[in-house]
Design a protein around this nucleic acid. Structure first.
Length: 222
DNA sequence: CGGATTTGACCCGCGC
DNA sequence: GCGCGGGTCAAATCCG
């Protein structure tokens, strides 16, 4: 329960903090996902890459950097108010477009990715404001993961330099403009990349509508 | 028959 | 200004 709750918090903070300039807090690096990205307007950044394939796999990415970040963040542990203890995960390491606003924190043998602010690339002034986006990678045979919402496909496109098409979906709920796209990673077709854009104005609707008793999965991220 | 999917056309932002 | 490429539209088609 506590785990799910804070995962949801993470998700909400990603979406509500549209300019990504204020504190986003810490979140546990979860074993289900191999990467996180969040975006705003034109910018989409990789926040974290997880994990080594096996728990005992060697850490290949900038351990010294991670150590430095851990030390830095431990001196400003006030940020940990965002999330309390989480279930443990294996020994994952985070990396990404690291800058001084992102860090790794270890607490009780668990790893957290800290995002206190995002350094955005320069964003041109634009009239059209894109919805914030959230994207993750999963290893799955299934392209369209069941996330509790109902989607209608409205397009498919072959993107250059990839052999797998990208599919575009829209939430079927009236007035809900949430979109998602699904594609397979060119370098590793076992990986599915799912990108969500926007925020649902309603709760997940499965066929057998148990809206209140929604499972852990339905509110895992949104 | 109605809703979902397919798919080529169209749109539009961006870089050159 | 032009072409490229990604995103969307919508008519045709599929399917339960």
């Amino acid at each position: 329960m506590s785990s799910t709750a804070s995962q949801t918090m993470l998700n909400q903070s990603l979406f509500e903090d549209q300019d990504l300039s204020s504190q986003l807090g810490f979140f546990p690096i979860h074993s289900n996902f191999t990467s996180f990205q969040l975006g705003c307007n034109q910018s989409l950044k990789t926040l974290a890459m997880v994990p080594p394939l096996a728990a005992d796999a060697p850490v290949t990415l900038s351990e010294s950097f991670a150590q430095k970040q851990k030390e830095e963040i431990s001196s400003q542990s006030a940020g940990s108010q965002f999330f309390s203890s989480q279930r443990s995960t294996a020994n994952y390491w985070a990396w990404g477009e690291m800058n001084d606003t992102m860090s790794i924190k270890r607490s009780g043998g668990e790893d957290y990715l800290g995002v206190t602010a995002m350094k955005m690339k320069k964003i041109k002034a634009r009239r059209k404001v894109r919805e914030p986006r959230f994207c993750f990678k999963t290893m799955s045979d299934i392209d369209v993961l069941d996330d509790g919402y109902k989607w209608r496909k409205y397009g498919q496109k072959v993107v250059k330099n990839t052999q797998h098409p990208r599919s575009y979906y829209r939430c079927t709920q009236d007035n809900c403009r949430v979109k998602k796209r699904v594609e397979r990673l060119a370098e590793d077709p076992r990986m599915v990349i799912t990108t969500y854009e926007g925020r649902h104005i309603h709760s997940p609707s499965h066929d057998e509508d148990d809206s209140q008793a929604s499972s852990q999965f339905t509110n895992f991220f949104w």
